[in-house]
Write a protein that binds this DNA or RNA. Structure first.
Length: 249
DNA sequence: CACCAGGCCGTGC
DNA sequence: GCACGGCATGGT
């Protein structure tokens, strides 16, 4: 039985691969189709780690609640959201697609990449393509898939896939440096990748929503007030705001 | 028609 | 160092 908020976790904008199909949430991960819901007994070690079920969220959330009343409210409304341990490569491309884009369209582009270059692991279900499956892709190919100006960025990531996939055991500063050496990866995308695939909990992605909230609710302060759970706090603020709870300006 | 979306790049100062 | 326009696409 799942004892955290699965729906908020899967649809709070950290992942682009989950779909709702009937009573299940469905995604292709780890080269197979996963179908889960709130009643699922999660025993697969891959899923336990992916869903971050070994992390002490009771402790983290009790600390976060004490940091700020607005944040406390966000945790109350959004329940227990987990930070996923997603595949590094899939997260890199996913968040390159995210820039100056909206979540619906990011999901669509992500799905198109799977259908075009991934493996069909079950009829109608495609994996996200590994770097070697993309080695012959051209900019024109990608533009035909409607990724727009992100096409050369994706190509640069493919070209540098090997070094990109070596950042798992690098420290934050060096990981950031390697990530941002790729064209199209700046500070925001880099921090998303570190947070949502490497579980670097102090990474604090500053998108338009977060910038708005920080200005509105935490004027003059920065993410260090949320250490050592800045990334988790960020995700609550982001999701809470997107649900429509941003106070009127 | 405008403006926006989980930004970043190139240029100019 | 910071400010600005441009960028593909689709939605409102």
């Amino acid at each position: 039985m799942i004892n955290f908020d699965l729906e908020n976790t899967l649809f709070c904008g950290q992942s682009f691969c989950w779909r709702k199909e009937g009573e299940f949430y469905v995604a292709v991960l780890n080269n197979k189709v996963y179908r889960i819901n709130e009643k699922s007994e999660i025993e697969d070690p891959f899923l336990i780690h992916y869903l971050d079920m070994d992390f002490d969220y009771q402790l983290a959330l009790s600390k976060i609640r004490k940091m700020d009343p607005f944040l406390d409210e966000a945790v109350t409304k959004c329940n227990e959201i987990h930070i996923l341990n997603q595949d590094l490569w899939e997260t890199i491309i996913g968040f390159i697609l995210s820039q100056n884009n909206n979540i619906k369209r990011i999901e669509g582009l992500y799905d198109t990449l799977c259908r075009t270059y991934g493996n069909e692991v079950e009829e109608g279900y495609f994996s996200f393509p590994r770097p070697h499956m993309l080695k012959d892709v051209t900019e024109e190919d990608l533009r035909n898939l409607k990724v727009g100006f992100r096409a050369p960025y994706i190509l640069d990531a493919i070209k540098n896939a090997q070094v990109l996939l070596s950042i798992e055991d690098k420290d934050d500063r060096e990981a950031d440096e390697i990530l941002q050496s790729v064209k199209g990866i700046g500070p925001k995308v880099s921090s998303c990748i570190r947070l949502f695939s490497l579980h670097r909990l102090n990474a604090f992605p500053k998108d338009v929503w977060i910038k708005k909230i920080m200005k509105l609710m935490f004027e003059g302060k920065d993410e260090s007030i949320f250490y050592p759970y800045a990334g988790l706090a960020q995700q609550y603020l982001f999701h809470y705001a997107r649900l429509g709870y941003l106070p009127e300006v």
